[in-house]
Amino acid sequence: MYDIIIVGAGPAGLTAAIYARRAQKSVLVLEAKSYGGQIINTLDIENYPVEEHISGFDFATKLYKQTKALGAEIVFEKVVDINDLGNTKEVVTTKNKYSCKAVIIATGSEDRKLGLSNEDELVGKGISYCATCDGAFYKGKTVAVVGGGNTALEDALYLSDIASKVYLIHRRDEFRAEETTVEQLKKKENVEFIYNSTVTKLNASERLESIEVTNKDGSVRTIEVNGLFVAVGRIPENQNFAKLIELDNAGYVKAGEDCKTTCKGIFTAGDNRIKEVRQLVTATGDGAVAATNAVKYINNL
């Protein structure tokens, strides 16, 4: 029996583990893939206090080592279910069952897809969800980025130094991204902004060859591209817990700043919670709050 089981080894989950260990609780972190979460896709983090520059990989690895050094157990198994047995919770993975007193769900989110019919089969053949991973394959080529948030604009900026031409396709006429990034991107001569438009078709034979872009006014344009980078947001990974805790219509866990879910003893932290700002620093903040409240809950059992 563990005191606390944390589902997800991203920045929120690992920070929660640090706080729980420092409160002398036994901790098991369960992770489906590898530690670090979404931040490992970021080449250079410039907005986390203290470090002027750090890569996502280095950040994640430092955090992982810190968590391990404090005595948290980290096991790579995918959690498929959580059962609420009152004062005990049972966490079910694809391989094992674990018992604990409190659970912190920090599963984060996954890439949202465009939802076009041949999208999946073109992944690796022109469609990518990770510009920092795949940008280098498009040296001197033409690419498009679709999206209007920080990720999309940072992707476009990164790609503008590699590709000969970058189209940025956004469904609105203003961006959600940080103003600094927008300004930097507007200075790039090889970037063309396509506003009020969505990608409606992927034309391919062996590989992606062109995309059909439809404007709000109904006009349609076909653009030849070698690659399309999709950055249209994220989907919270809470589906496995929907019977246990309340989610909003978009699938985010209904929990406030106290990180308490609608089920006693189940807490949440990070991007899968309803919140305004989804950043590294708010994820780690959540981790601290969720762990502190989980510790309080256990001490009052």
Partner: peptide, 28 residues
């Protein structure tokens, strides 16, 4: 081998590609 997304895992059997996977995936 037309690799344009990484990480990319390719399984070769008898010198031929038999399976392929893209992105970070669980050990299982």
């Amino acid at each position: 081998y037309n690799v344009s997304s990484i990480p990319c895992l390719v399984l070769f059997e008898n010198g031929e590609e038999s399976r392929r996977s893209i992105g970070l995936i669980p050990k299982e």
